[in-house]
């Protein structure tokens, strides 16, 4: 997936939903972590080492 033209976390999530429509509902519930730090939807998407899609957590 080419993410170079995407500017925010929100745009990344939208692109994931477009590319993987069967996962669209799941992506909506996920958070995005960039280099192991959670990001908000309006945070900028900057070129980093790793982008992780984190499903709702359920530890404890």
């Amino acid at each position: 997936m080419n993410i170079s033209r995407l500017e925010t976390i929100e745009e990344l999530k939208e692109e994931l939903k477009r590319k993987y429509p069967s996962l669209a509902n799941d992506v909506s519930q996920c958070k995005i972590a960039v280099d192991m730090t959670f990001k908000q939807d309006d945070d900028p998407l900057e070129a980093k080492q790793e982008i992780a899609v984190i499903p709702p957590v359920s530890g404890g």
Binding site: P55, S58, G59
Partner: peptide, 23 residues
Amino acid sequence: LKKRVPIWKKEFDHDKVRWGGIR
């Protein structure tokens, strides 16, 4: 921890398997 630590549970219940359990 329950909100923001990336740990997940796969719960084996009498009727089915639930990721995340009953929330």
